[in-house]
Design a protein around this nucleic acid. Structure first.
Lengths: 347, 347
DNA sequence: TTGTACGCGTTATCAG
DNA sequence: CTGATAACGCGTACAA
């Protein structure tokens, strides 16, 4: 029954005694084809078991309906939400996603960018690795005018757009919230300052401290990978501080570090929020499971992914032509939970 | 400087006064090319900014170095670990991943399978949607001998391999553990029985009950999507049972449902594990954050992804030709935590 | 060791 | 509305 050769538009053409060109047009709903022949073509395609060959098409038409997605890691709650959002948007518009992770390594990021380019993705969605210092490796895309959209961990570039949140403001607000709870020594667990998100969160934190006349001390600032282990180590650091210098609040740049820090401090007998208040970032599921529940910044990875992909696709379709340096800033909202509420205000 | 046209092997050929064929061979490290010309070719390629065009290559060579990955949802801890593992293996062997999610909908799964086929993936990695009843939509792959590897939610098929764990045994062991803790009325929160994983977990649970002469009652079995909401609803169900009929332990087929059920029961004043013990499945991060920590089955999504992808790639490379119905079964290990330890045994 | 010539399956162009 | 024909960029028999 089924043979080893592919079924091509030529087979359909021969079958119907029309030309391959007509078949091609019929299959693509080209307007200038008669209703009748189109119907015959689609039917024949089905009975012959025709499956279009995307390559041949891409080779000729020079676009692949494929978007490249390059992220630091696939396995975090935030990132998998982003990917889910992107996949949704892409799928809805007939695009596919080809996904790779840099594992926080520039070199891998470079290699991945190169393969994405070779696969001729129509556009690139990228969130930078921890130690990326420049974006020379994206030059091929810029040169060929292949649109690049940065999301979350962005990089200023005049011909690209970026999608994220206002990290400065978010950090400012959450730090202010802690200050308003009466916290005097607020510590910050931050990430690598090469990445805008962490730099901005640090800036917002600092400004809030200054505005509330609270100490901005190097002893109250730790930078790390914000992993589980980093959270645990931060707890160790805090416990090792002389009692008078211990923070009475911690604002962590992500929920993971916050939660594992909390767990370790609780194990050491500290009470949260009475001895030390906590705020995180991301609204990760664990923030609603830890006790007391973690105050955090909620912003939807799904929306970020959706927005970034949709923007890119609109751009590709020529709907939006706004090459813009302006970033698309999505809403982030503070979710106040028990971990940050100091007793004095609760009564 | 840079022009709008692609740099092709012809440009390199012209530049070096050789034939395109020579360039093609030189670029692919074809052994029968002189060291000298090869060097000149690779150099010229670099200076001209040549980037190989994967399509043209794929069109000719009929393989894409791309694997299709089709999953129910992208945004779960387990699945994102699987993807991370796959990406690792793929990247290591020079393959790329094109990823789509079915959102638990067969129809979307079908459409996605079709596009994967059209994109001519070299192989397919798939975990079935909730309501998939047959795999007719994979016929195109089977017909064209494109290898398909099932993982986690598998489907028996004589020409495909599947990668997963022994769900029956795992569920049996964890249920037995609860029984050995002295639990008499053990409830099970299960998933859709169309999917082998949930059917097998149910079977293991039932057999363990029988072996310990414990009641196997329909009142002690709930089937759901195992979402957060489903967990909360299960708690409602438990609380609404007449006191005498309430379970004294719950084995949930995933951690999410277990944790949200625990939270709701705790809020209602039940003590865990004293009033009701708990065990989950997956070793999701939340299982280590909930209090008391959740006893669960640990199996690595990363390993499953890695194994499935590596197996598929080896198959493609002809290293392993074993078309086999036999499943690859990975290790799953029980992690005993406080939530399942009844008081009597703790003292 | 290198060059010639053709084909992969589709779409764009230009006629009709 | 439809047909013929030429690309698209690369790989590979076959010939040199």
């Amino acid at each position: 029954m089924s043979e080893d050769r592919e079924v091509t538009i030529y087979d359909i053409a021969r079958y119907l005694n029309v030309s391959a060109a007509t078949v091609s047009r019929g299959l693509k709903n080209n307007p200038m084809i008669s209703k009748n022949t189109r119907k015959k073509i689609t039917e024949a395609a089905k009975t012959l078991g025709y499956q279009s060959n995307t390559f041949a098409s891409s080779l000729r038409s020079r676009h692949t309906h494929t978007l490249g997605v390059l992220v630091p890691r696939l396995n975090s709650h935030f990132m998998s939400s982003v990917l889910a959002g992107m996949e949704n948007a892409a799928n809805r518009h007939g695009y596919n996603l080809i996904i790779a992770q840099s594992l926080e390594d520039v070199e891998k990021e470079k290699r991945n960018a190169a393969t994405m380019f070779n696969k001729r993705v129509d556009g690139l969605l990228i969130s930078l690795s921890y130690n990326t210092t420049d974006i020379h490796h994206l030059e091929p895309f810029f040169k060929r005018k292949i649109p690049v959209v940065f999301f979350d961990r962005i990089y200023p570039h005049e011909e690209s757009t970026s999608v994220g949140i206002n990290n400065y403001e978010a950090a400012y607000n959450i730090t202010r919230h802690l200050a308003e709870q009466g916290c005097k020594r607020i510590m910050h667990l931050g990430g690598n300052l090469l990445r805008n998100v962490y730099q901005e969160r640090l800036n917002g934190y600092r400004q809030a401290l200054r505005d509330h006349h609270l100490p901005v001390s190097k002893k109250l600032y730790l930078t790390s990978t914000l992993s589980e282990q980093a959270g645990t180590e931060a707890a160790r650091y805090i416990l090792d501080l002389p009692p008078g210098e211990r923070p009475d609040a911690v604002f962590s740049a992500n929920d993971t570090a916050a939660v594992y820090c909390m767990l370790a401090l609780k194990a050491a007998g500290l009470r949260i929020p009475d001895d030390i208040a906590f705020a995180g970032f991301n609204n990760d599921p664990i923030s609603r499971v830890i006790e007391p529940n973690l105050t955090t910044m909620d912003y939807s990875g799904d929306s970020i992914g959706n927005t970034a992909a949709t923007y890119l696709i609109n751009h590709l379709k020529g709907i939006s032509n706004l090459y813009t340096t302006d970033a698309i800033t999505l809403r982030a909202e503070m979710v106040i939970r028990a971990s940050s509420l100091k007793k004095k205000l609760r009564e």
